[in-house]
Design a binder for these strands. Structure first.
Lengths: 136, 136
DNA sequence: TTCTTGACTTAGACGGAGTCCAATGTACGA
DNA sequence: TCGTACATTGGACTCCGTCTAAGTCAAGAA
């Protein structure tokens, strides 16, 4: 993830303690944390870090494509540091846990031209829903 | 949509003016309205109807499967009255317009058992993203 | 028809998630 | 080292949705 910090700097972004901590927290466990969970873990390392900074930093990482936002429902967005390989998400309807999954085939190919209504279609996001072992 | 009201009644639900109006509004235009948009249109017909009732009624319709919730972004959920036939959604990244689309194949079939992690997977939602003719 | 009753509706308070802002702090080039 | 443009802070604010207590009313019973 120091690569990420390097890439951020190449874009002219300042390297601050706050940004470093957010990057480390996200990279630490490969789970999909909410912004507030990131904040809670960041506070453990840098007690003064504010919620607004966490939101700003996550937003910056998303905008350069290093992190992917996962909007699983009406719940809080989660942040996925595994942006380097295409994948989809499996979400537990009970507890909201998110897992990365790799279905076969390209979901884009399933949409015929006649169903594109003149759109320039660039991506397909698939969300599988169900109950995890703990919730079922 | 009077079918819907009938089905609601068969479930032992009372037929009230409020529920009738929400059903009519949703059925009126086949667009994907947010709860507040439904509320605004319902008020035009029944000025005293409250926001809470609109939320309750939409929730009931979702729970019996007559209406589908669509969460296209982190913003307000939209309600899709076209629940009688399986379909997916094509969202314009520019203006947010949502269109119903019908890809071939079953997206659930693309997820092998080894990628299900013990979940009981019950549904797959596909969101295609791109730019509509007006925005591209 | 009127009565009864429990389900429905209401307004407003409340909560979580996220954004905004003015004041303060600081990374980094000169 | 210094200056300043950019980052951070914390608290207020918005938006979306849920909850609650009190009042209302649909529909079956008599």
């Amino acid at each position: 993830m120091s690569d990420l910090l390097e890439r951020l700097r190449e874009r002219g972004w300042r390297l601050t303690a706050q940004r470093r901590v957010v990057a480390e927290v996200l990279d630490g466990d490969h789970v999909h944390l909410t912004a507030d969970e990131v904040h809670a873990r960041a506070i453990a390392r840098l007690p003064e870090i504010s919620r607004a900074t966490v939101y700003n930093t996550l937003g910056e990482m998303v905008s350069i494509g290093e992190v992917v936002e996962v909007a699983t429902d009406g719940r809080a967005k989660r942040y996925d540091p595994n942006a380097h390989r295409p994948h989809q998400h499996l979400v537990c309807s009970g507890c909201g846990t998110v897992r990365d999954v790799h279905p076969h085939g390209d979901p884009l190919a399933a949409l015929p031209a006649a169903e594109r209504f003149g759109f320039t279609v660039s991506a397909a996001e698939v969300t599988y829903r169900g109950l995890c072992p703990d919730c079922s």
